[in-house]
Amino acid sequence: MLKLALRRIAALLPTLLVIVTLSFAIIRLAPGGPFDAEQGVSPAVRANLERLYGLSKPLHVQYLRYLRALAHGDFGPSLRQRDFTVRELIAQGLPISATLGLCAIALALLGGIPAGIAAALWRSPAADFSVAAIAALGMALPSFVIGPLLALVFGIYLRWLPVAGWQPGTARYLLLPVLTLALPLAVALARLTRASLLEVLRAPYVRSARARGIGEARLVWRHALRPALLPVASYLGPATAFVITGSLVVEAVFGLPGTGRYLVQGAIDRDYPLVMGMVIVYGILTLLLNLLADLACGWLDPAIRHG
């Protein structure tokens, strides 16, 4: 197990380097720049600015310089939000985005998996139909539809919760965003858990354990659940990507000052250091959560652990 973990961690850094290099290349080879006329800057000012930020140097020199700075934890200055470094911007937004994302993943896991188990164990034609209907609806309700709908119901009609906005340290403002983000994920997890548990319950080793008279509860808990959660754990990787992209929408819908807007606005503005910073932060997050999912798979299945 430890060997597996160490090997995966060792593979993280090269992968991250590939991501940084690819993104750097794509962003910088794209037409347009941060100080184009389109962005409302005169040519003379533009030349000055470019010199100031080192953008006039050859690309590979800039790339190496960027890497060197990165190694010291320096993401560089934001080109458009003067007076701020990228690091400061991230430090402002990340706590909110991370809280939102992690709460949503936790909520989806805690809600979706037990729901899926329950749906697999208590089956009836009516229950199966409702499960299928809810699952189909859940898959068809993207976060940018659920968000406004939840805001409409709980914020405007019922007036229980704030429609949008943010005050530091108040959970009320996070409740609807987390719910919006978690709901589709919980439905997907529940669907996956149910299907996979049903499959495992048909496995010969479950029948054989049942023949040993160890009791249904223990049977499900000790013998069936771990293998059934294997596909669920593998799904955590894509789920992270889902949460990260979903958080962009949710932050926009509920007006949360997270990091999502930096990515979108940064890309539109060609604010190179900001976009790169966001790519790196999200890249690390994705890789780490994928690693966690892999380790979970290893824990669930000794055959994977032993390679």
Partner: peptide
């Protein structure tokens, strides 16, 4: 229920055809 589980494994042991798929893989 529990009455059946006092027979299964306790009074009657059962061995199945394929030992690979009949043993729980993660235990």
């Amino acid at each position: 229920g529990p009455a059946l589980d006092r027979v299964r494994g306790v009074q009657i042991g059962m061995v199945f055809q394929d030992p690979m798929t009949s043993l729980t893989p993660h235990l």
